[in-house]
Design a protein around this nucleic acid. Structure first.
Length: 363
DNA sequence: GACTAGTGTCGAC
DNA sequence: TTACGGTCGACACTAGTC
């Protein structure tokens, strides 16, 4: 029996959350923003509803640019993100999705995979009903719409869920894989971003069908062996990755935009305690230890730099994290000529605190 | 050659 | 005319070591 995998993706999730709290927001363009610490409209767009998207506003865009695009649109609203509120809604949504899955995989606040092979006995008609039921349950419990893709694997279901948005339901049965994928632009393949797309277009490949026409060797020449092999399979709708419960984090980080660009090591060091405290809070909540500490620097020209160090022993000590981060920052700043815009701290090489570590370490 | 540590880049959400 | 978040995962590449 072939597998059947669902992928559910909530439409412009943060904007929809805001709309459930204030339904009047549905009537006009809505932009949910991450304002940086610099005041004014410094920051980026997290998401926008479909009325805003119709004016060319989308995720990742500078807030200022979004303002310009909606300058003449009456009633446009710009709201700051409220992650705690979205998280609460997400938990309830994920609970509903999980209830419809044999195996459930959380991907992010607004996205999940569900293996439904057993409960549908591998039948696509039944799977379509399950997908519709998922959508109905989410709508009646939370007043939210989501788009669902159904196919033999994660890869194609993910592409399918994005095929008809918002509120879509796209089923791609095993015999329809190549016909479904062929006309799509290469960028629709997950994991393939702007850079890879540019490289493929330069090599004469715009659609998935174009990719399929090339050998795995030709693709590897353009994108490297690993990506080439992945793309060769993806263009045929081949993906053997199982739906699996998410494992623990492999890293935790905090990054902040500084009040002003600076090369002053002392000023930058002032941000370290708060960043470390944030990282440590997440670490403590999950009872994890760390062995590697890193600092991240985003320069005023947006180029990035990082420095990291591996400690002798795993630890959960905030003081040790701060010491290591401060020293890495000092070291990085010695050769820093371009002003720094954003500063971050990251820990990795994680372990379980378990019983071997005293809770004093979390102090 | 195998392995590890460290750095930088890319991509998803 | 520009403008630009925060968090996480993965991997390419290099250098050093054995």
């Amino acid at each position: 029996m072939g597998r059947i995998v669902l992928h559910a993706d909530f439409d412009h999730f943060y904007a929809q959350c805001e709309e459930t709290r204030n339904p009047l927001l549905r009537a006009a363009p809505l932009v949910v923003c991450v304002f940086s610490g610099r005041g004014g409209d410094s920051g980026a767009v997290a998401t926008a509803n479909y009325l805003a998207r119709a004016h060319g506003v989308g995720s990742g865009m500078a807030i200022n640019l979004a303002r310009r695009r909606l300058r003449d649109v009456e009633g446009s609203r710009f709201l700051p993100v409220d992650f705690a509120f979205y998280e609460g809604i997400s938990e309830r949504a994920m609970g509903i999705l999980r209830g419809h899955a044999d195996t459930f995989e959380y991907v992010g606040r607004d996205e999940a995979y569900m293996d439904v092979t057993q409960r549908t006995s591998g039948d696509y008609g039944t799977a379509r009903h399950v997908a519709q039921q998922v959508k109905n349950d989410v709508r009646s419990a939370l007043s939210l719409t989501c788009s669902v893709g159904v196919s033999p694997n994660r890869l194609v279901s993910k592409i399918a869920s994005g095929h008809q948005k918002p509120d879509g339901l796209t089923v791609v049965a095993p015999g329809e894989l190549e016909g479904f994928l062929g006309p799509l632009g290469v960028r629709r393949i997950p994991g393939l971003g702007k850079r890879a797309e540019e490289a493929l277009v330069a090599a004469g490949m715009r659609t998935v069908a174009d990719v399929r026409a090339r050998s795995v060797f030709a693709l590897s020449e353009v994108l490297g062996r690993r990506m080439g092999t992945y793309l060769h399979n993806a263009s045929r709708g081949i993906d053997g990755e199982p739906v699996a419960e998410r494992g623990p984090n492999v890293q935790y980080s905090r990054i902040t935009t500084l009040e002003r660009d600076s090369t002053d090591a002392g000023f930058l060091a002032g941000a370290i305690p708060r960043l470390c405290a944030g990282v440590h809070e997440s670490l403590a909540a999950d009872a994890r230890t760390f062995r590697s500490v890193g600092v991240l620097i985003v320069q005023a020209n947006m180029a990035t730099k990082s420095r990291s160090v591996t400690l002798r022993n795993a630890t959960s000590s905030l003081a040790e994290m701060e010491r290591a981060a401060s020293s890495l920052l000092r070291e990085a700043m010695e050769s820093q000529e371009v002003p720094v815009r954003r500063l971050g701290v990251r820990v990795s090489d994680l372990g379980d605190a378990g019983g071997q570590s005293s809770m004093d370490d979390y102090a």
